[in-house]
Design a binder for these strands. Structure first.
Lengths: 300, 300
DNA sequence: ACCCCTGATACCCGTGGGGTATCAGGCGCT
DNA sequence: AGCGCCTGATACCCCACGGGTATCAGGGGT
């Protein structure tokens, strides 16, 4: 009696996102009438009205909103099935690790080195991504495991293993007065005249209000930092780039950040288990030392 | 270039589970040839061999094993989309809670009462299930939230909020010598002559070795306990049924059990958030008191 | 040598998914 | 008001593909 097809889900998602049958059909490379029919059929089969066709435009019913998030999730799962299966065939038991471009250089290097030294180690490909993309990338199968940071990254739907908890540092131009301080507070850092903190887009694409520049990519941010146009507060181990003309000053009351290894909930491959175990050992051995040395070098 | 259909996934799962095209076709209510073709087409589209057709039978390739778990997961997600959408239309913003039949009676009652007393409370339907089924039920959308127990239940893929951590008690016939003890240890309890602990099937359907009776449902177990044929060790709050002729004796060194509220990772409906908040308050207010009183009553 | 059991191939048919042409209604513009 | 236009819905056609039956191919078991 049941059994939606992914085709129907794809069609619905397109219409729900465009809120316009014509544009949705165009995006799907098909004509509008069959799309209308397909959606009607989907609604009939579910016995549920998903879209309000009012005068001048389409809107989602409450059931439609539920369907949109569930359909996206289901389509992700289907894509992931195809991707992971293909990878299983082409690179047997290899892993793809994704991480924010530039973040956790040292940590990642240590992790990969330690893992590679293990007897049963498999190839690990690194896939660089933008901030906040890791969850999606894990869900749709482009990667098997990610390096993420709480409380910044949303961990829902993922299992994880902590690697390192640490404070944050402010990245300041060496010429700036704040650069001479040995430590700072959030209050001092959050409203520096001429050096505002950058604003990232929210999930809906809009930006929070504030004086800082709007950024949506890491490279953009790097640019702004290099130009001395924005102040950056990041985990001590996450210096993304080498800024010879900048110093890192600890921010005492910034929230603690935990770097962790995350993977799609429920996945349990032997290679992944080995990597997690490596991370656990790394944590016990204390990566903290190296990181603080590193910080010292930057700040000095 | 991509885009598997759920039909293909269903077919593959059937074949992968039966390891036999004929039986799989029968299960799918179709003939064998089109099934063979569909699987071939799936393999062509993926560019990956999923099944080894040796003489005398079919077996999964390593890629096929990956595909099997991923396909099951994807099909669950598709089912969940349909179920949740239908429910969103028929019972707007209601919740379905699932729990092991008979477990956590008191706790559940308190939770539901406390929640119902809230201003914005919605209808909560309770769906009773067997041990270990909760994860599946949440994943495929039959329920929105579950009461589960660590370390017994597998929590992968679920978010959760702890409600209560407690010790375990042994359920013993009142006439048995052990019933007069004020406390017990696992060693004393695990090998009582004439009162062996029941054995549950493992995930693959086989039973671990041991003297105890094989059970696969709660009602079966209830029967055996009532007959005085098996000894039961359960969380103090999880007395499933009223056994007037049995007593509950604390088992001091049994692993602590945490009762928690669990829901599919990433889901965030207002009603669910309210329920989780209710559970949090309940935990703070300390349900522990009531439970220990309860235990006292049983044991005495 | 035979049969039978396996999955694969050959071929046919009908459904249904997709196309084009057109309709229906609401809003804006003059 | 009348017209045009933009929306999604309907009508109708067509063929591609999913499914059926019949049959093949090969490998064991007796």
């Amino acid at each position: 009696m049941d059994g939606l097809e992914t085709r129907e889900l794809r069609y619905f998602v397109a219409v729900a996102e465009e809120l316009h049958f014509g544009r949705a059909a165009e995006r799907l490379n098909m004509a509008q009438p069959p799309l209308s029919r397909a959606i009607q059929q989907l609604e009939r089969r579910l016995g549920v009205l998903l879209l309000n066709r009012d005068r001048r435009g389409v809107s989602l019913t409450t059931a439609g909103e539920i369907m949109l998030v569930e359909a996206r999730r289901a389509l992700d799962a289907v894509d992931a099935a195809a991707r992971r299966t293909r990878r299983a065939a082409s690179a047997p038991s290899g892993l793809v690790l994704t991480t924010k471009a530039g973040a956790s250089h040292e940590l990642l290097k240590q992790l990969l080195d330690a893992y590679a030294a293990r007897p049963g180690a498999v190839e690990i490909d690194v896939l660089l991504c933008e901030i906040g993309e890791q969850g999606q990338i894990l869900r749709d199968g482009r990667a098997d495991v990610a390096i993420m940071h709480t409380p910044f990254d949303v961990m829902t739907g993922l299992d994880s293993a902590e690697i390192l908890t640490e404070g944050q540092v402010a990245i300041v131009p060496a010429s700036h007065p704040l650069a001479r301080r040995s430590s700072l507070t959030m209050a001092e850092v959050s409203d520096v005249p001429g050096l505002p903190i950058a604003r990232w887009p929210r999930h809906d694409g809009t930006y929070p209000p504030g004086p800082g520049p709007e950024v949506h990519s890491q490279s953009q941010l790097a640019q702004l930092v290099a130009l001395g146009r924005t102040l950056l507060v990041i985990p001590a181990s996450s210096r993304a780039w080498q800024w010879p003309e900048h110093v890192a000053v600890p921010v005492l009351d910034a929230p603690l950040v935990t770097t962790l290894l995350a993977w799609p909930a429920g996945v349990r491959s032997p290679a992944l288990a080995e990597l997690v175990e490596t991370a656990r050992q790394l944590k016990e051995r204390g990566i903290g030392d190296l990181v603080s040395v590193k910080n010292h070098k930057i700040a000095g």
